[in-house]
Design a protein around this nucleic acid. Structure first.
Lengths: 163, 163
DNA sequence: CCAAATTAGTTGCAAATGATACTAATTTCC
DNA sequence: GGAAATTAGTATCATTTGCAACTAATTTGG
């Protein structure tokens, strides 16, 4: 049982509005777009700068590499976000004593205070987006997204393994 | 009952990996990225060119405006995609007889044959992504995404209505 | 212990994207 | 009937992004 299409199981017609990658993309852009506009307008932060701040908000000093992993961002994107944040003195970089190639990044007090200000707003935005969803539905959504995430990683690993 | 945070209902801490807009964005990028790479490599199509082809695959000649609505793409993006597709002779544009500002766009035979070739692959990619999901789970996922879509539209309409 | 390979992070350049302004055709409505 | 406002689509320019090449430090393995 391959699940592959044949005479008995024809491939259903493609309808863009029903196509999962399309729907994910539109929903994600709508959701992120709303909030990104707000970050930008109120704090002058790009969505990537915000992501970096979000992971640094925990208080630990971590390397750019660790930021890449925690944010699913490319190292170039992280590098640029860090440069912008450092220029505004929202983060500080100290060369790691154990590896002089790497820098340990942490929020400055100003960075931390921006985090403290945005974090609750971010949670409100999320809540607002999920208004009308029951706790059970939120749980389902989370679980389904996790599985899609995992599945996409698997497919990427097999270099597509795609048709 | 505002749902707003107070002493009794504190705002939960922000954890990026649990944050819905972030998760949506990552999942969407992973899913689209996989498939977009395949469009590009095999057919030289950008994701937008593909979306345009997908809506034209139905066979109707429609205006760029209608394509915008059907694909959730910006009119500039549609214009560029159409230019690229027209250069490759995958679409044809005829001035609309009823409105000389608008052009009715349709696939050429070559365009149609590309659609016919990709559409089943696209369905396979989707199936592959959803491998392991029960019919019920797929239905749930679809419903939840629809509601998020709708909700994001509502929020955008109230200019954010966001905090 | 040292040459080769790997890793951290940055930079430079080409291509993609987005915002704005523009042209041309059409509608509105006085 | 025609001036003003609207709409379809395109062009322009600044910014962002993505890729590949690069520097510097570290690890590997012979």
């Amino acid at each position: 049982m391959t699940g592959r299409a044949d005479r008995a199981n024809p491939v259903p017609a493609l309808v863009l509005s029903e196509y999962l990658p399309y729907r994910l993309s539109v929903v994600s852009n709508k959701a992120s777009g709303l909030i990104a506009r707000a970050y930008q307008a109120r704090f002058g932060l790009s969505i990537w700068e915000w992501r970096v701040i979000a992971v640094l908000g925990g208080g630990e000093a971590i390397t750019a590499q660790a930021i890449c992993e925690a944010t699913a961002m490319d190292k170039v994107t992280v590098s640029r976000a860090l440069r912008a944040l450092a220029e505004r003195a929202l983060v500080r970089r100290r060369t790691s004593p154990s590896d002089k190639r790497a820098a340990l990044v942490s929020l400055t007090p100003e960075g931390q205070s921006i985090f403290d200000e945005i974090a609750p707003l971010a949670m409100e935005w999320e809540r607002s987006l999920l208004e009308g969803f029951s706790a059970e539905e939120k749980r389902q959504l989370g679980g389904l997204l996790d599985r899609l995430w995992q599945r996409a990683d698997e497919l990427a690993r097999n270099d597509g393994g795609l048709p």
